[in-house]
Simulated assay, not measured.
Amino acid sequence: MPYDSSVYKGLLVQGRLHQALDYLAPFPEAAGLIQRTRRRFTNPRPLCRDADPLLAALDRTFQTYYNEVFWQELPLPDCDARLLAALVPLAGLSPADLPDDIPRAMEVTEGRLAELLEARGVHYLGGRTQGYFGPYIWQTTTEQVAQVELPDRIQPCKVCLLSDFIAKGWLDYLSLGQIGAGGWQDGDTLYCVLHRYRGGVESEAFQVSFLKHEAQHIYDRECCGETSGVLLEYRAKLAELIYSSGIACFRGMLFSADSTSPANSHAYAAWRVVGDLSRRVFGEEYTGDYARWKHRVQAVRRAALDAYHASYRPEVAASLRL
C-alpha cells in the first residue's frame, strides 16, 4: 500500500507517537520526517521559541512533559504531577497556595500564568486537550461576528481570529506543526487558529470544519446544557459531514477513530461516527475500509443528517455521555 499521510496523522491525533513512526518506517519518502521527529524528542536541548524568560521557561517545561508522555510513554498521572511541580514556581506560587488535587491545582496555576502573560500582552489558554496538557500561547486577536447555519437553526457567534503563536498545544508539537487544533469554543465566542486554514476565512475548511463544528458546540451547550465531551464532538463532527462537499472530512475521522480511550473525545467520537454511519450506509457494525467510502459522499451526508437528528433522542444521547 502507498504512503497515506491520513493514517500517520490519525495515529498522532490518538496520541500514539511511536505507532505513527512505525507506520512511516517502510516508506522512503517519510525518512526525513522520521529523522526530524526523532531529533525533536532525543535532542537534550529543547526548542527556543521566544526570548522572554518566562515564555522560554514555560515552553521548555511543556516540551519536557511531551517527551515524558509521548516519547517515553511514562504513566500520565506521574507526568501531570511533575508538570505541575515545574509550573508552580514559574507562576510565583507555592504548593501551600494550591488545592490538593492536580486538576484544580493546575487550573489555579495556569490561571496565574495567564494573568502574568496578559500583563506582557500575550494570551495563554491552558487546560487539557483530549486528555493531555499543552497550552496555546499567542499575541494577536482580531474579532468579527458570524451567523452560522446549522441543520436546525442559525447560530450567532463572535469569532476571534488568533495569530502570532508561540505555542499551539501538544498535537502541533508532535506533528512538527503539520496538524493541530483549528480552534475552540468558549461561551458564545469561537477562537480560530487562523494559520490552520490555508484558504483563509472563505475556505470550506474554515466555514465547515471550524465554524460549523464550533457553532454546534455553542448550540448544544446553550440549548441543551450539554457537557459531555464525546457527545459534543459527535454532533459537531456530524455537522461537518452534513455540509462537507467531499469525502476528505470523513476520511480524516476514519483514520483518527479510536475506540480505546473515551478521554480523547475527538478520537472516540470519530469512532462512534464511523460506526453509526457504517450501520446506516452499509448495514454493517463498522466499515473501516476507506476504499468502500471514498465514492459515497452523498450517502455519508444523508446518513450524517439522520444520525444528527437521532442524537437528540434521549436514549441515543445517553449512550454518548461518557
Rank of each mutant, 00 (worst) to 15 (best):
I179L: 01
L84R: 00
C223W: 05
L162H: 05
N67S: 04
V316P: 08
L305I: 05
A263H: 02
Q207F: 07
I179V: 15
A239F: 02
D186I: 08
C79W: 08
V300C: 03
E222V: 12
A25F: 06
G111Y: 03
R301I: 01
Y286E: 03
F210K: 12
R40Y: 11
R296L: 13
A307F: 12
Q19Y: 05
L125R: 15
F41Q: 04
A299P: 00
T260D: 15
P314L: 05
A31M: 03
S261H: 15
V145R: 14
G15R: 08
L11Q: 09
L194E: 15
G10W: 09
S244K: 11
S5V: 11
D22Y: 01
V273N: 14
R82C: 01
R45M: 01
P151N: 10
W170L: 09
V69Y: 05
E68N: 12
L47G: 12
Y124F: 15
A31N: 06
H213Q: 14
T37I: 08
I242Y: 06
Q207I: 01
M106N: 14
S163M: 05
R60I: 00
D52P: 11
G126M: 04
G92L: 12
L116D: 08
A167P: 06
V193E: 04
R235H: 12
S203Y: 07
I137E: 07
N264C: 12
H195S: 10
A96F: 10
Y23K: 15
L305E: 14
E143K: 14
G187H: 13
G92Y: 08
G275L: 02
T129G: 08
A267R: 09
D306L: 02
L58W: 00
E149D: 10
V273Q: 13
L194V: 14
R49E: 07
L211N: 11
G229Q: 06
Y65R: 13
I137R: 04
L58M: 11
A51L: 02
V69S: 04
A114Q: 05
D188S: 09
T61F: 00
T129A: 13
A239C: 10
V201A: 10
E149F: 01
Y308F: 13
V316C: 07
R40A: 14
L90F: 08
L125Y: 15
D289I: 13
D186V: 06
L24C: 13
L47M: 12
D289Q: 15
P89F: 11
